[in-house]
Design a protein around this nucleic acid. Structure first.
Length: 663
RNA sequence: GCGCCCGUAGCUCAGCUGGAUAGAGCGCCGGGCUUCGAACCCGUAGGUCGGAGGUUCGAAUCCUCCCGGGCGCACCA
């Protein structure tokens, strides 16, 4: 980690700027720390002199020189240069840096905020199999969770289950009206087929069925009504389908190392009257009002605040376009209302709580779900909700509604909660023309540059199909390379490789880039891919495997031996510079994680890991360890490998990827 | 119409709060396995950073306008 050194440099600069330069603490410029473009320039670059030049009316170079003169010693820093252009370049104590990290004597910085964070992600409608689009949500959400935990923050992971909407109702309609099935039939089907796949196909057929005769849509209305009413077979079937599909999703997500603490069922929000309570609060605070005229007459609506809306031209203002329906004229709340109630609950502002039940056990850990049935309450339930910050991971198409959510908090007077209510938005996953064609869809080459995934049409790459394909491809390769492995071992390795391939693929893009998913590209294990990273770690591990086997040397022994090793190998020459560059790069992980969380740009972690693996691979080829005869050189190289391996393993873990010992 | 996002090498994309010579992967071409695993490494070719103005000592990065593309703007969720 590099952040403790950054903190020390920053603290010292602050001190000098207030004392020697006489700047008021409130006046201090933000001190940015950068990585110099070339190693020879130093290890940490600070452009603060540029910032000060305007204020002090002096040349950056002169300021930089004065700063250097005033700086004095800083722990971990051996030298500071004032570059001719005005940069302040810090050189670190290489050997001390590496040794301290291998010995584990560097304390990480305390988290800036210790309060609980709720991250909600995945939230797939429980009526069909998960597809590639859902995977982007889960991969980003789970990675965010891991990054926050890495920073030392307590995180609660929630998965919102919309069991009351039209989506589940549609599948019920499909089973009952198209296939004439009873609840018993559906249960039998669930036990004898891949139920999420079965529903995937059925859901698409229901769409066609509605399309064929609009009168069929009446059946949807009836099903929705029956589900809301409860106490009938339609409702039971809906509940059964949702439960089973959620279990399918959990299994799919578990394959990808994604898990949750709590499943929030929308039905419970309704049954426990969360909405009624929120409704009264919103009315009391005048956050919503009953529209009495126009086409929204009879609806409870919320005014949409548009801060940057241009002035509406004379006479063209349509007030109803500035209003969002929260409660329909028939008295039924829209999903936004339910979301508002849920968001209030997340911050502990509702004055009510769910009841909880144990939903399932995953790896010995209980996954809880909300319930409205008190009789299911287990003895020990963790304290859910009451977070100080909330991240809702949901694609950018929902930006408008997420904005309303935040606005509702602010309007109700919860400014602080509104400020800590974050929509983690990302762009959608579509299909490349080639992949859509491969799935059997006809593509207009002059149409859109990609094909949008549609659960309603059954158009998409199912998550498990993708993982299966990746696993099979990987297993063939693993078996070829490692004939001694048993089938089980090679399968397990192949699964780890498949997971890394998918997850790396989904986080390497910046979040506001549409991914035109291409199956052939995703299936590749070469170049900038998850398996490339795993391969680098596996090779690093191999070096230590051989060191132990041949000389009984392990990481601890190497670390201990560094105390008496000559420093030339890390401090001098081209090889020393490369070795140190590798170590310094590996050390940046904490900085990278900070940056990723601040900007919600998780791709920086992926890019960092890839770049580190690249540097390692080059180092690996250029600077052999086992063959190296100079003891001190060998020790420092081995130490660098140990540290890189550790950091790269950590980075992969942050992206939810395991590292197989052999692959 | 209004709002958000994207436009950088043949293709897919990086480029952090403006900063030191615009990078990577794939593809192309050419090298490197008597191995610490070639799922790798090294090298060549390839870019008016969509366009035009502006701010600045300095702009792919900030501002304005324009062009091209995507997505939102339901008494659906």
């Amino acid at each position: 980690m590099i952040l403790p050194i950054h903190a020390a440099i920053r603290a010292r600069l602050h001190e000098i700027l207030t004392t020697t330069f006489g700047l008021a603490p409130a006046d201090l410029p933000a001190i940015a720390l950068e990585l110099p473009p070339k190693r020879a320039f130093g290890d940490v670059a600070v452009p603060v002199a540029f910032e000060l030049a305007k204020r002090l009316k002096k040349a950056p170079r002169a300021i930089a020189q004065e700063l250097v003169a005033a700086l004095g010693p800083i722990a971990g820093v051996t030298r500071v240069d004032a570059a001719p252009n005005g940069y302040l370049n810090f050189f670190l104590d290489r050997a001390t840096f590496l040794r301290a990290r291998l010995e584990g004597t560097v304390a990480p910085l305390a988290p800036s905020d210790a309060g609980k964070v709720i991250v909600e992600h995945t939230a797939i409608n429980p009526n069909k199999a998960a597809h590639i689009g859902h995977l982007r949500n889960a991969a980003l959400g789970d990675t965010l969770v891991r990054l926050l935990r890495f920073q030392g923050r307590p995180v609660e992971v929630q998965n919102y289950i919309d069991d009351t909407g039209v989506q589940v109702a549609d599948v019920v309609v499909g089973f009952r009206e198209i296939e004439g099935k009873t609840l018993a039939d559906v249960k039998q089907l669930a036990d004898s087929t891949r139920f999420d796949y079965t529903c995937w196909d059925l859901y698409a057929r229901v769409g066609e069925w509605y399309e064929a005769d609009k009168a069929n849509l009446a059946k949807r209305g009836e099903a929705l009504h029956a589900i809301e009413e409860g106490g009938n077979e339609t409702a039971e079937m809906g509940a059964f389908i949702a439960d089973r599909i959620v279990r399918c999703h959990l299994k799919t997500m578990a394959r990808l190392n994604v898990d949750y603490d709590l499943l929030t069922w929308e039905g419970d929000i309704l049954r426990l009257k969360f909405w009624s309570t929120t409704f009264e609060d919103l009315k009391r605070r005048k956050a919503i009002f009953l529209q009495t005229e126009g086409k929204l007459a009879g609806c409870w609506v919320m005014t949409i605040e548009d801060d940057d809306a241009p002035v509406t031209p004379e006479g063209e203002d349509d007030p109803e376009q500035r209003e969002k329906v929260i409660v329909r004229s028939n008295g039924v709340v829209t999903y936004i209302g339910k979301d508002i109630a849920n968001q209030f609950w997340k911050f502990g502002l509702l004055g009510m709580d769910f009841r909880y039940r144990a939903f399932t056990e995953i790896d010995g850990r209980t996954l809880f779900a909300t319930t409205s049935d008190a009789s299911l309450a287990p003895a020990h339930v963790p304290p859910f909700g009451k977070a100080s910050a909330v991240y809702n991971v949901i694609d950018t198409r929902q930006a408008y509604l997420q904005k309303l959510l935040k606005q509702a908090l602010a309007t109700m007077g919860f400014q602080n909660e509104a400020a800590h209510s974050t929509h983690f938005a990302y762009e959608m996953v579509a299909l490349s023309h080639a992949t859509a064609r491969e799935l059997g869809y006809t593509v207009d080459p002059d149409g859109k540059p990609f094909v949008e995934v549609s659960g309603r049409k059954g158009l998409g790459v199912k998550a498990d199909d993708l993982i299966d394909r990746l696993t099979n491809t990987a297993q063939a390769e693993v078996a070829k390379r490692n004939p001694a492995l048993s089938a089980d071992e090679s399968r397990a390795t192949a699964e780890a490789i498949a997971v890394a391939a998918v997850r790396y693929f989904l986080v390497k893009f910046t979040r506001n880039k549409v991914i035109a998913f291409d199956i052939d590209e995703a299936l590749s294990f070469e170049g900038e891919t998850g398996p490339y990273l795993q391969y680098a770690v596996a090779r690093a591990g191999n070096i230590f495997g051989k060191l132990r086997e041949r000389e009984g040397l392990d990481e601890a022994a190497v670390t201990a031996a560094l105390a008496t090793a000559d420093l030339a190998a890390i401090n001098t020459g081209e090889d020393g510079d490369e070795l140190w560059g590798l170590v310094l790069e590996a050390g940046r992980l904490d900085d990278v994680v900070d940056q990723a969380v601040r900007s919600l740009e998780l791709s920086v972690v992926a890019k960092f890991a890839f770049s580190l693996a690249q540097s390692f691979s080059a180092f690996y080829h250029r600077q052999p360890i086992l063959k190296e005869e100079r003891r001190d050189v060998r020790l420092w190289r081995a130490a660098a490998v140990a540290y890189v391996r550790r950091q790269l393993t950590q980075a992969l873990d942050l992206m939810g990827c395991d590292v197989p010992a052999r692959m």
